[in-house]
Write a protein that binds this DNA or RNA. Structure first.
Lengths: 190, 190
DNA sequence: TTGTTGTTTAACAAAATTGTTAAACATTAA
DNA sequence: TTAATGTTTAACAATTTTGTTAAACAACAA
């Protein structure tokens, strides 16, 4: 892997997987096993590395989810697939959501997502239709979306805290998380 | 208010309410309207201010929740009250959870909560009993707890991101959040 | 008054972090 | 080979952030 890519991957690892949001350029360089100046050579500044990595992460997640949301398969299947895809990403990058939130707020981050994504609109519409059909309980589709993402993301995001609080092993916690897909589906289609 | 308290409150405001986790001592001092040296005078170091503020926030939340959990009232009422208390705290300090997570991980934070809190054990036991009674759906009480906290916390935590993504006003978002109590209760006791 | 204690400030020192520069090195095309 | 281009490094400079110190200030008791 070329060094530019290596630096990006390492930064993602540190930021999104290990939750080390304050990582300095030196720490990133060390973790990647490259000279610190290379970060400046390829990305000019720390902030630009940030933005590059952030954008790649968002775009990657978005394109994966969009593909599922536009899929022409029955709603129930679609939800099942959606949970698979999103939770897989969550487990890979458990701190990405936290990262986005804190970065968006601290710096007034340039997040380009200015208007509703088309895929999101499409999804909310489909949810509304399924409510009409009676497949899922009637209500505000946005609240349905809130529930769905909350049930998927929160227990993963809170892993380190919950593991301590509940005093359970990593393995036990993994099992709990892996059981969640079915639990969520049960909640949605009851 | 004396300056020591003022500094703590301002730090909490910046960290937990405004999500400005990287706030420097100078920024905290400015926000509090005090000389930066006062922070060192009262707290020795930035890190100790961190820890003080963190501990106070955790303790305050915990004691509030514990009180509800030990309350001898019907389970349904208890859940209603619990949601009120926790969501009020969430709206006051929407970034506290994110803060805890990122801080726990980046620094290997000294969080004293070594063993399960008694209140938590008590709550999980009560949930199990209610499952036996049939008040709520049978399952792992821990998963019930996951669901409950997820449904309460996540949409609040994600406010800035969701507001952008959904392209809705602050007021509209507040309305959505205020509707959640009933939605959560419906989910739990269906 | 004087002395004592606690509070507040500016100035300084130290440390950490970032960004730049110039030179060394590597690769490849002419 | 030489020249050209791109990559990598160490050394340096600049900046930011933190922590310390000594002095000024305020309140108040002896």
């Amino acid at each position: 892997m070329n060094k530019e890519e290596l630096i990006k991957q390492t930064a993602k690892e540190l930021f999104f997987s290990k939750g080390y949001l304050h990582a300095t350029t030196q720490e990133i360089a060390d973790a990647a096993g490259v000279n610190r100046s290379l970060i400046n050579y390829y990305f000019r500044s720390r902030d630009l590395l940030f933005q590059t990595v952030y954008r790649e992460a968002v775009d990657s997640l978005k394109s994966q989810l969009d593909k599922v949301l536009y899929d022409k398969i029955p709603f129930q299947e679609k939800m099942s697939l959606f949970i698979d895809v999103y939770m897989k990403e969550l487990l890979k990058y458990p701190y990405r959501e936290s990262f986005l939130i804190t970065e968006i707020c601290s710096k007034n981050f340039a997040l380009k997502e200015k208007k509703k994504s088309a895929a999101l609109v499409h999804f909310l519409k489909e949810v509304g239709e399924e409510m009409e059909k009676g497949t899922i309980k009637k209500g505000d589709p946005i609240q349905f979306m809130f529930n769905l993402f909350a049930l998927m993301a929160f227990p993963v995001i809170m892993t380190p805290l919950y593991q301590k609080l509940l005093d359970i092993s990593k393995e036990k916690y993994s099992t709990l998380i892996s059981e969640r897909k079915q639990i969520i589906l049960d909640q949605i289609f009851n």
